[in-house]
Amino acid sequence: MTATVDRTMRAAPADVGFFVVVFAIARRGLQRVVRIPALMLPALLMPVFFVVAFSGSFSSAVQVEGYGTNEAVNWMAAWAVMQGAAFAGVGAAGAAATDLENGFFDRLLLAPVKPLAIVTGLVMYGQARSLVPTTLVLIVAVLLGADLPGGVPGVVALYVAGIGVATFISLFGLVVAFRLRTTRSLSLIQIAIFSFMFLSIGQAPLVAIEGWLHHVARINPMTNILRLARQGFLGDIGWSTTWPGLVAIASLCAVFGLFAWRGVARLRP
């Protein structure tokens, strides 16, 4: 893995192309999970378990008004996909934190590479990782009886939302990892992400949620992202449920991207 980047550096030590570095870092991350499957396994199995468990446990919850479906799996599949994408994002931050601890990141920063290329490479790794749980959960959801009336556009919306979540969570994780420079930061990242995701319409529609959570879920950007992801399971695709999710993803990526870029720039000696 290290050799992948090192070969790239040796090929053009003075002027390494932006995308060469991006792809090298992303490939290094993917090679790492191929060589150490244990790193990827929980992130793969947990979303699959979630779609089975949430659909099974809360199968009668859809009797409450507002779900728009009689099958819990139609509601829970997108929720499980988002969690799988979030795990992928945490994985990207974890890779960065590990490299910060073992000194590889210091060597990377001494090389003639742009900080933005490092961040982009790590995010691309997170995005690529997210495709696996998204596909796996989708297959399991269909096996469990998910309807997908939204057809191919609905599936596209699901993947867009999954990649979007993996992107901004990778960026958020990198902000924290660059600041704390330790793998212990991962528990902090997980707590923050867990809170962000659960305080939304993950398991229940907004009209069914009561009290303080109703107000929090209404303004939580994750609610619009879930609407984007879930629409293909509940009916036809509509622009009114698509654009707010896209805006939420773009906004979160812009904010965390800026901080991540500044964070990696500060790490340079």
Binding site: V64, E65, Q203, A204, G211, W212, L213
Partner: peptide, 12 residues
Amino acid sequence: VYSSQFAKVVDL
């Protein structure tokens, strides 16, 4: 979270 999300479930 669950006490808010499933508040209406107890009325089923």
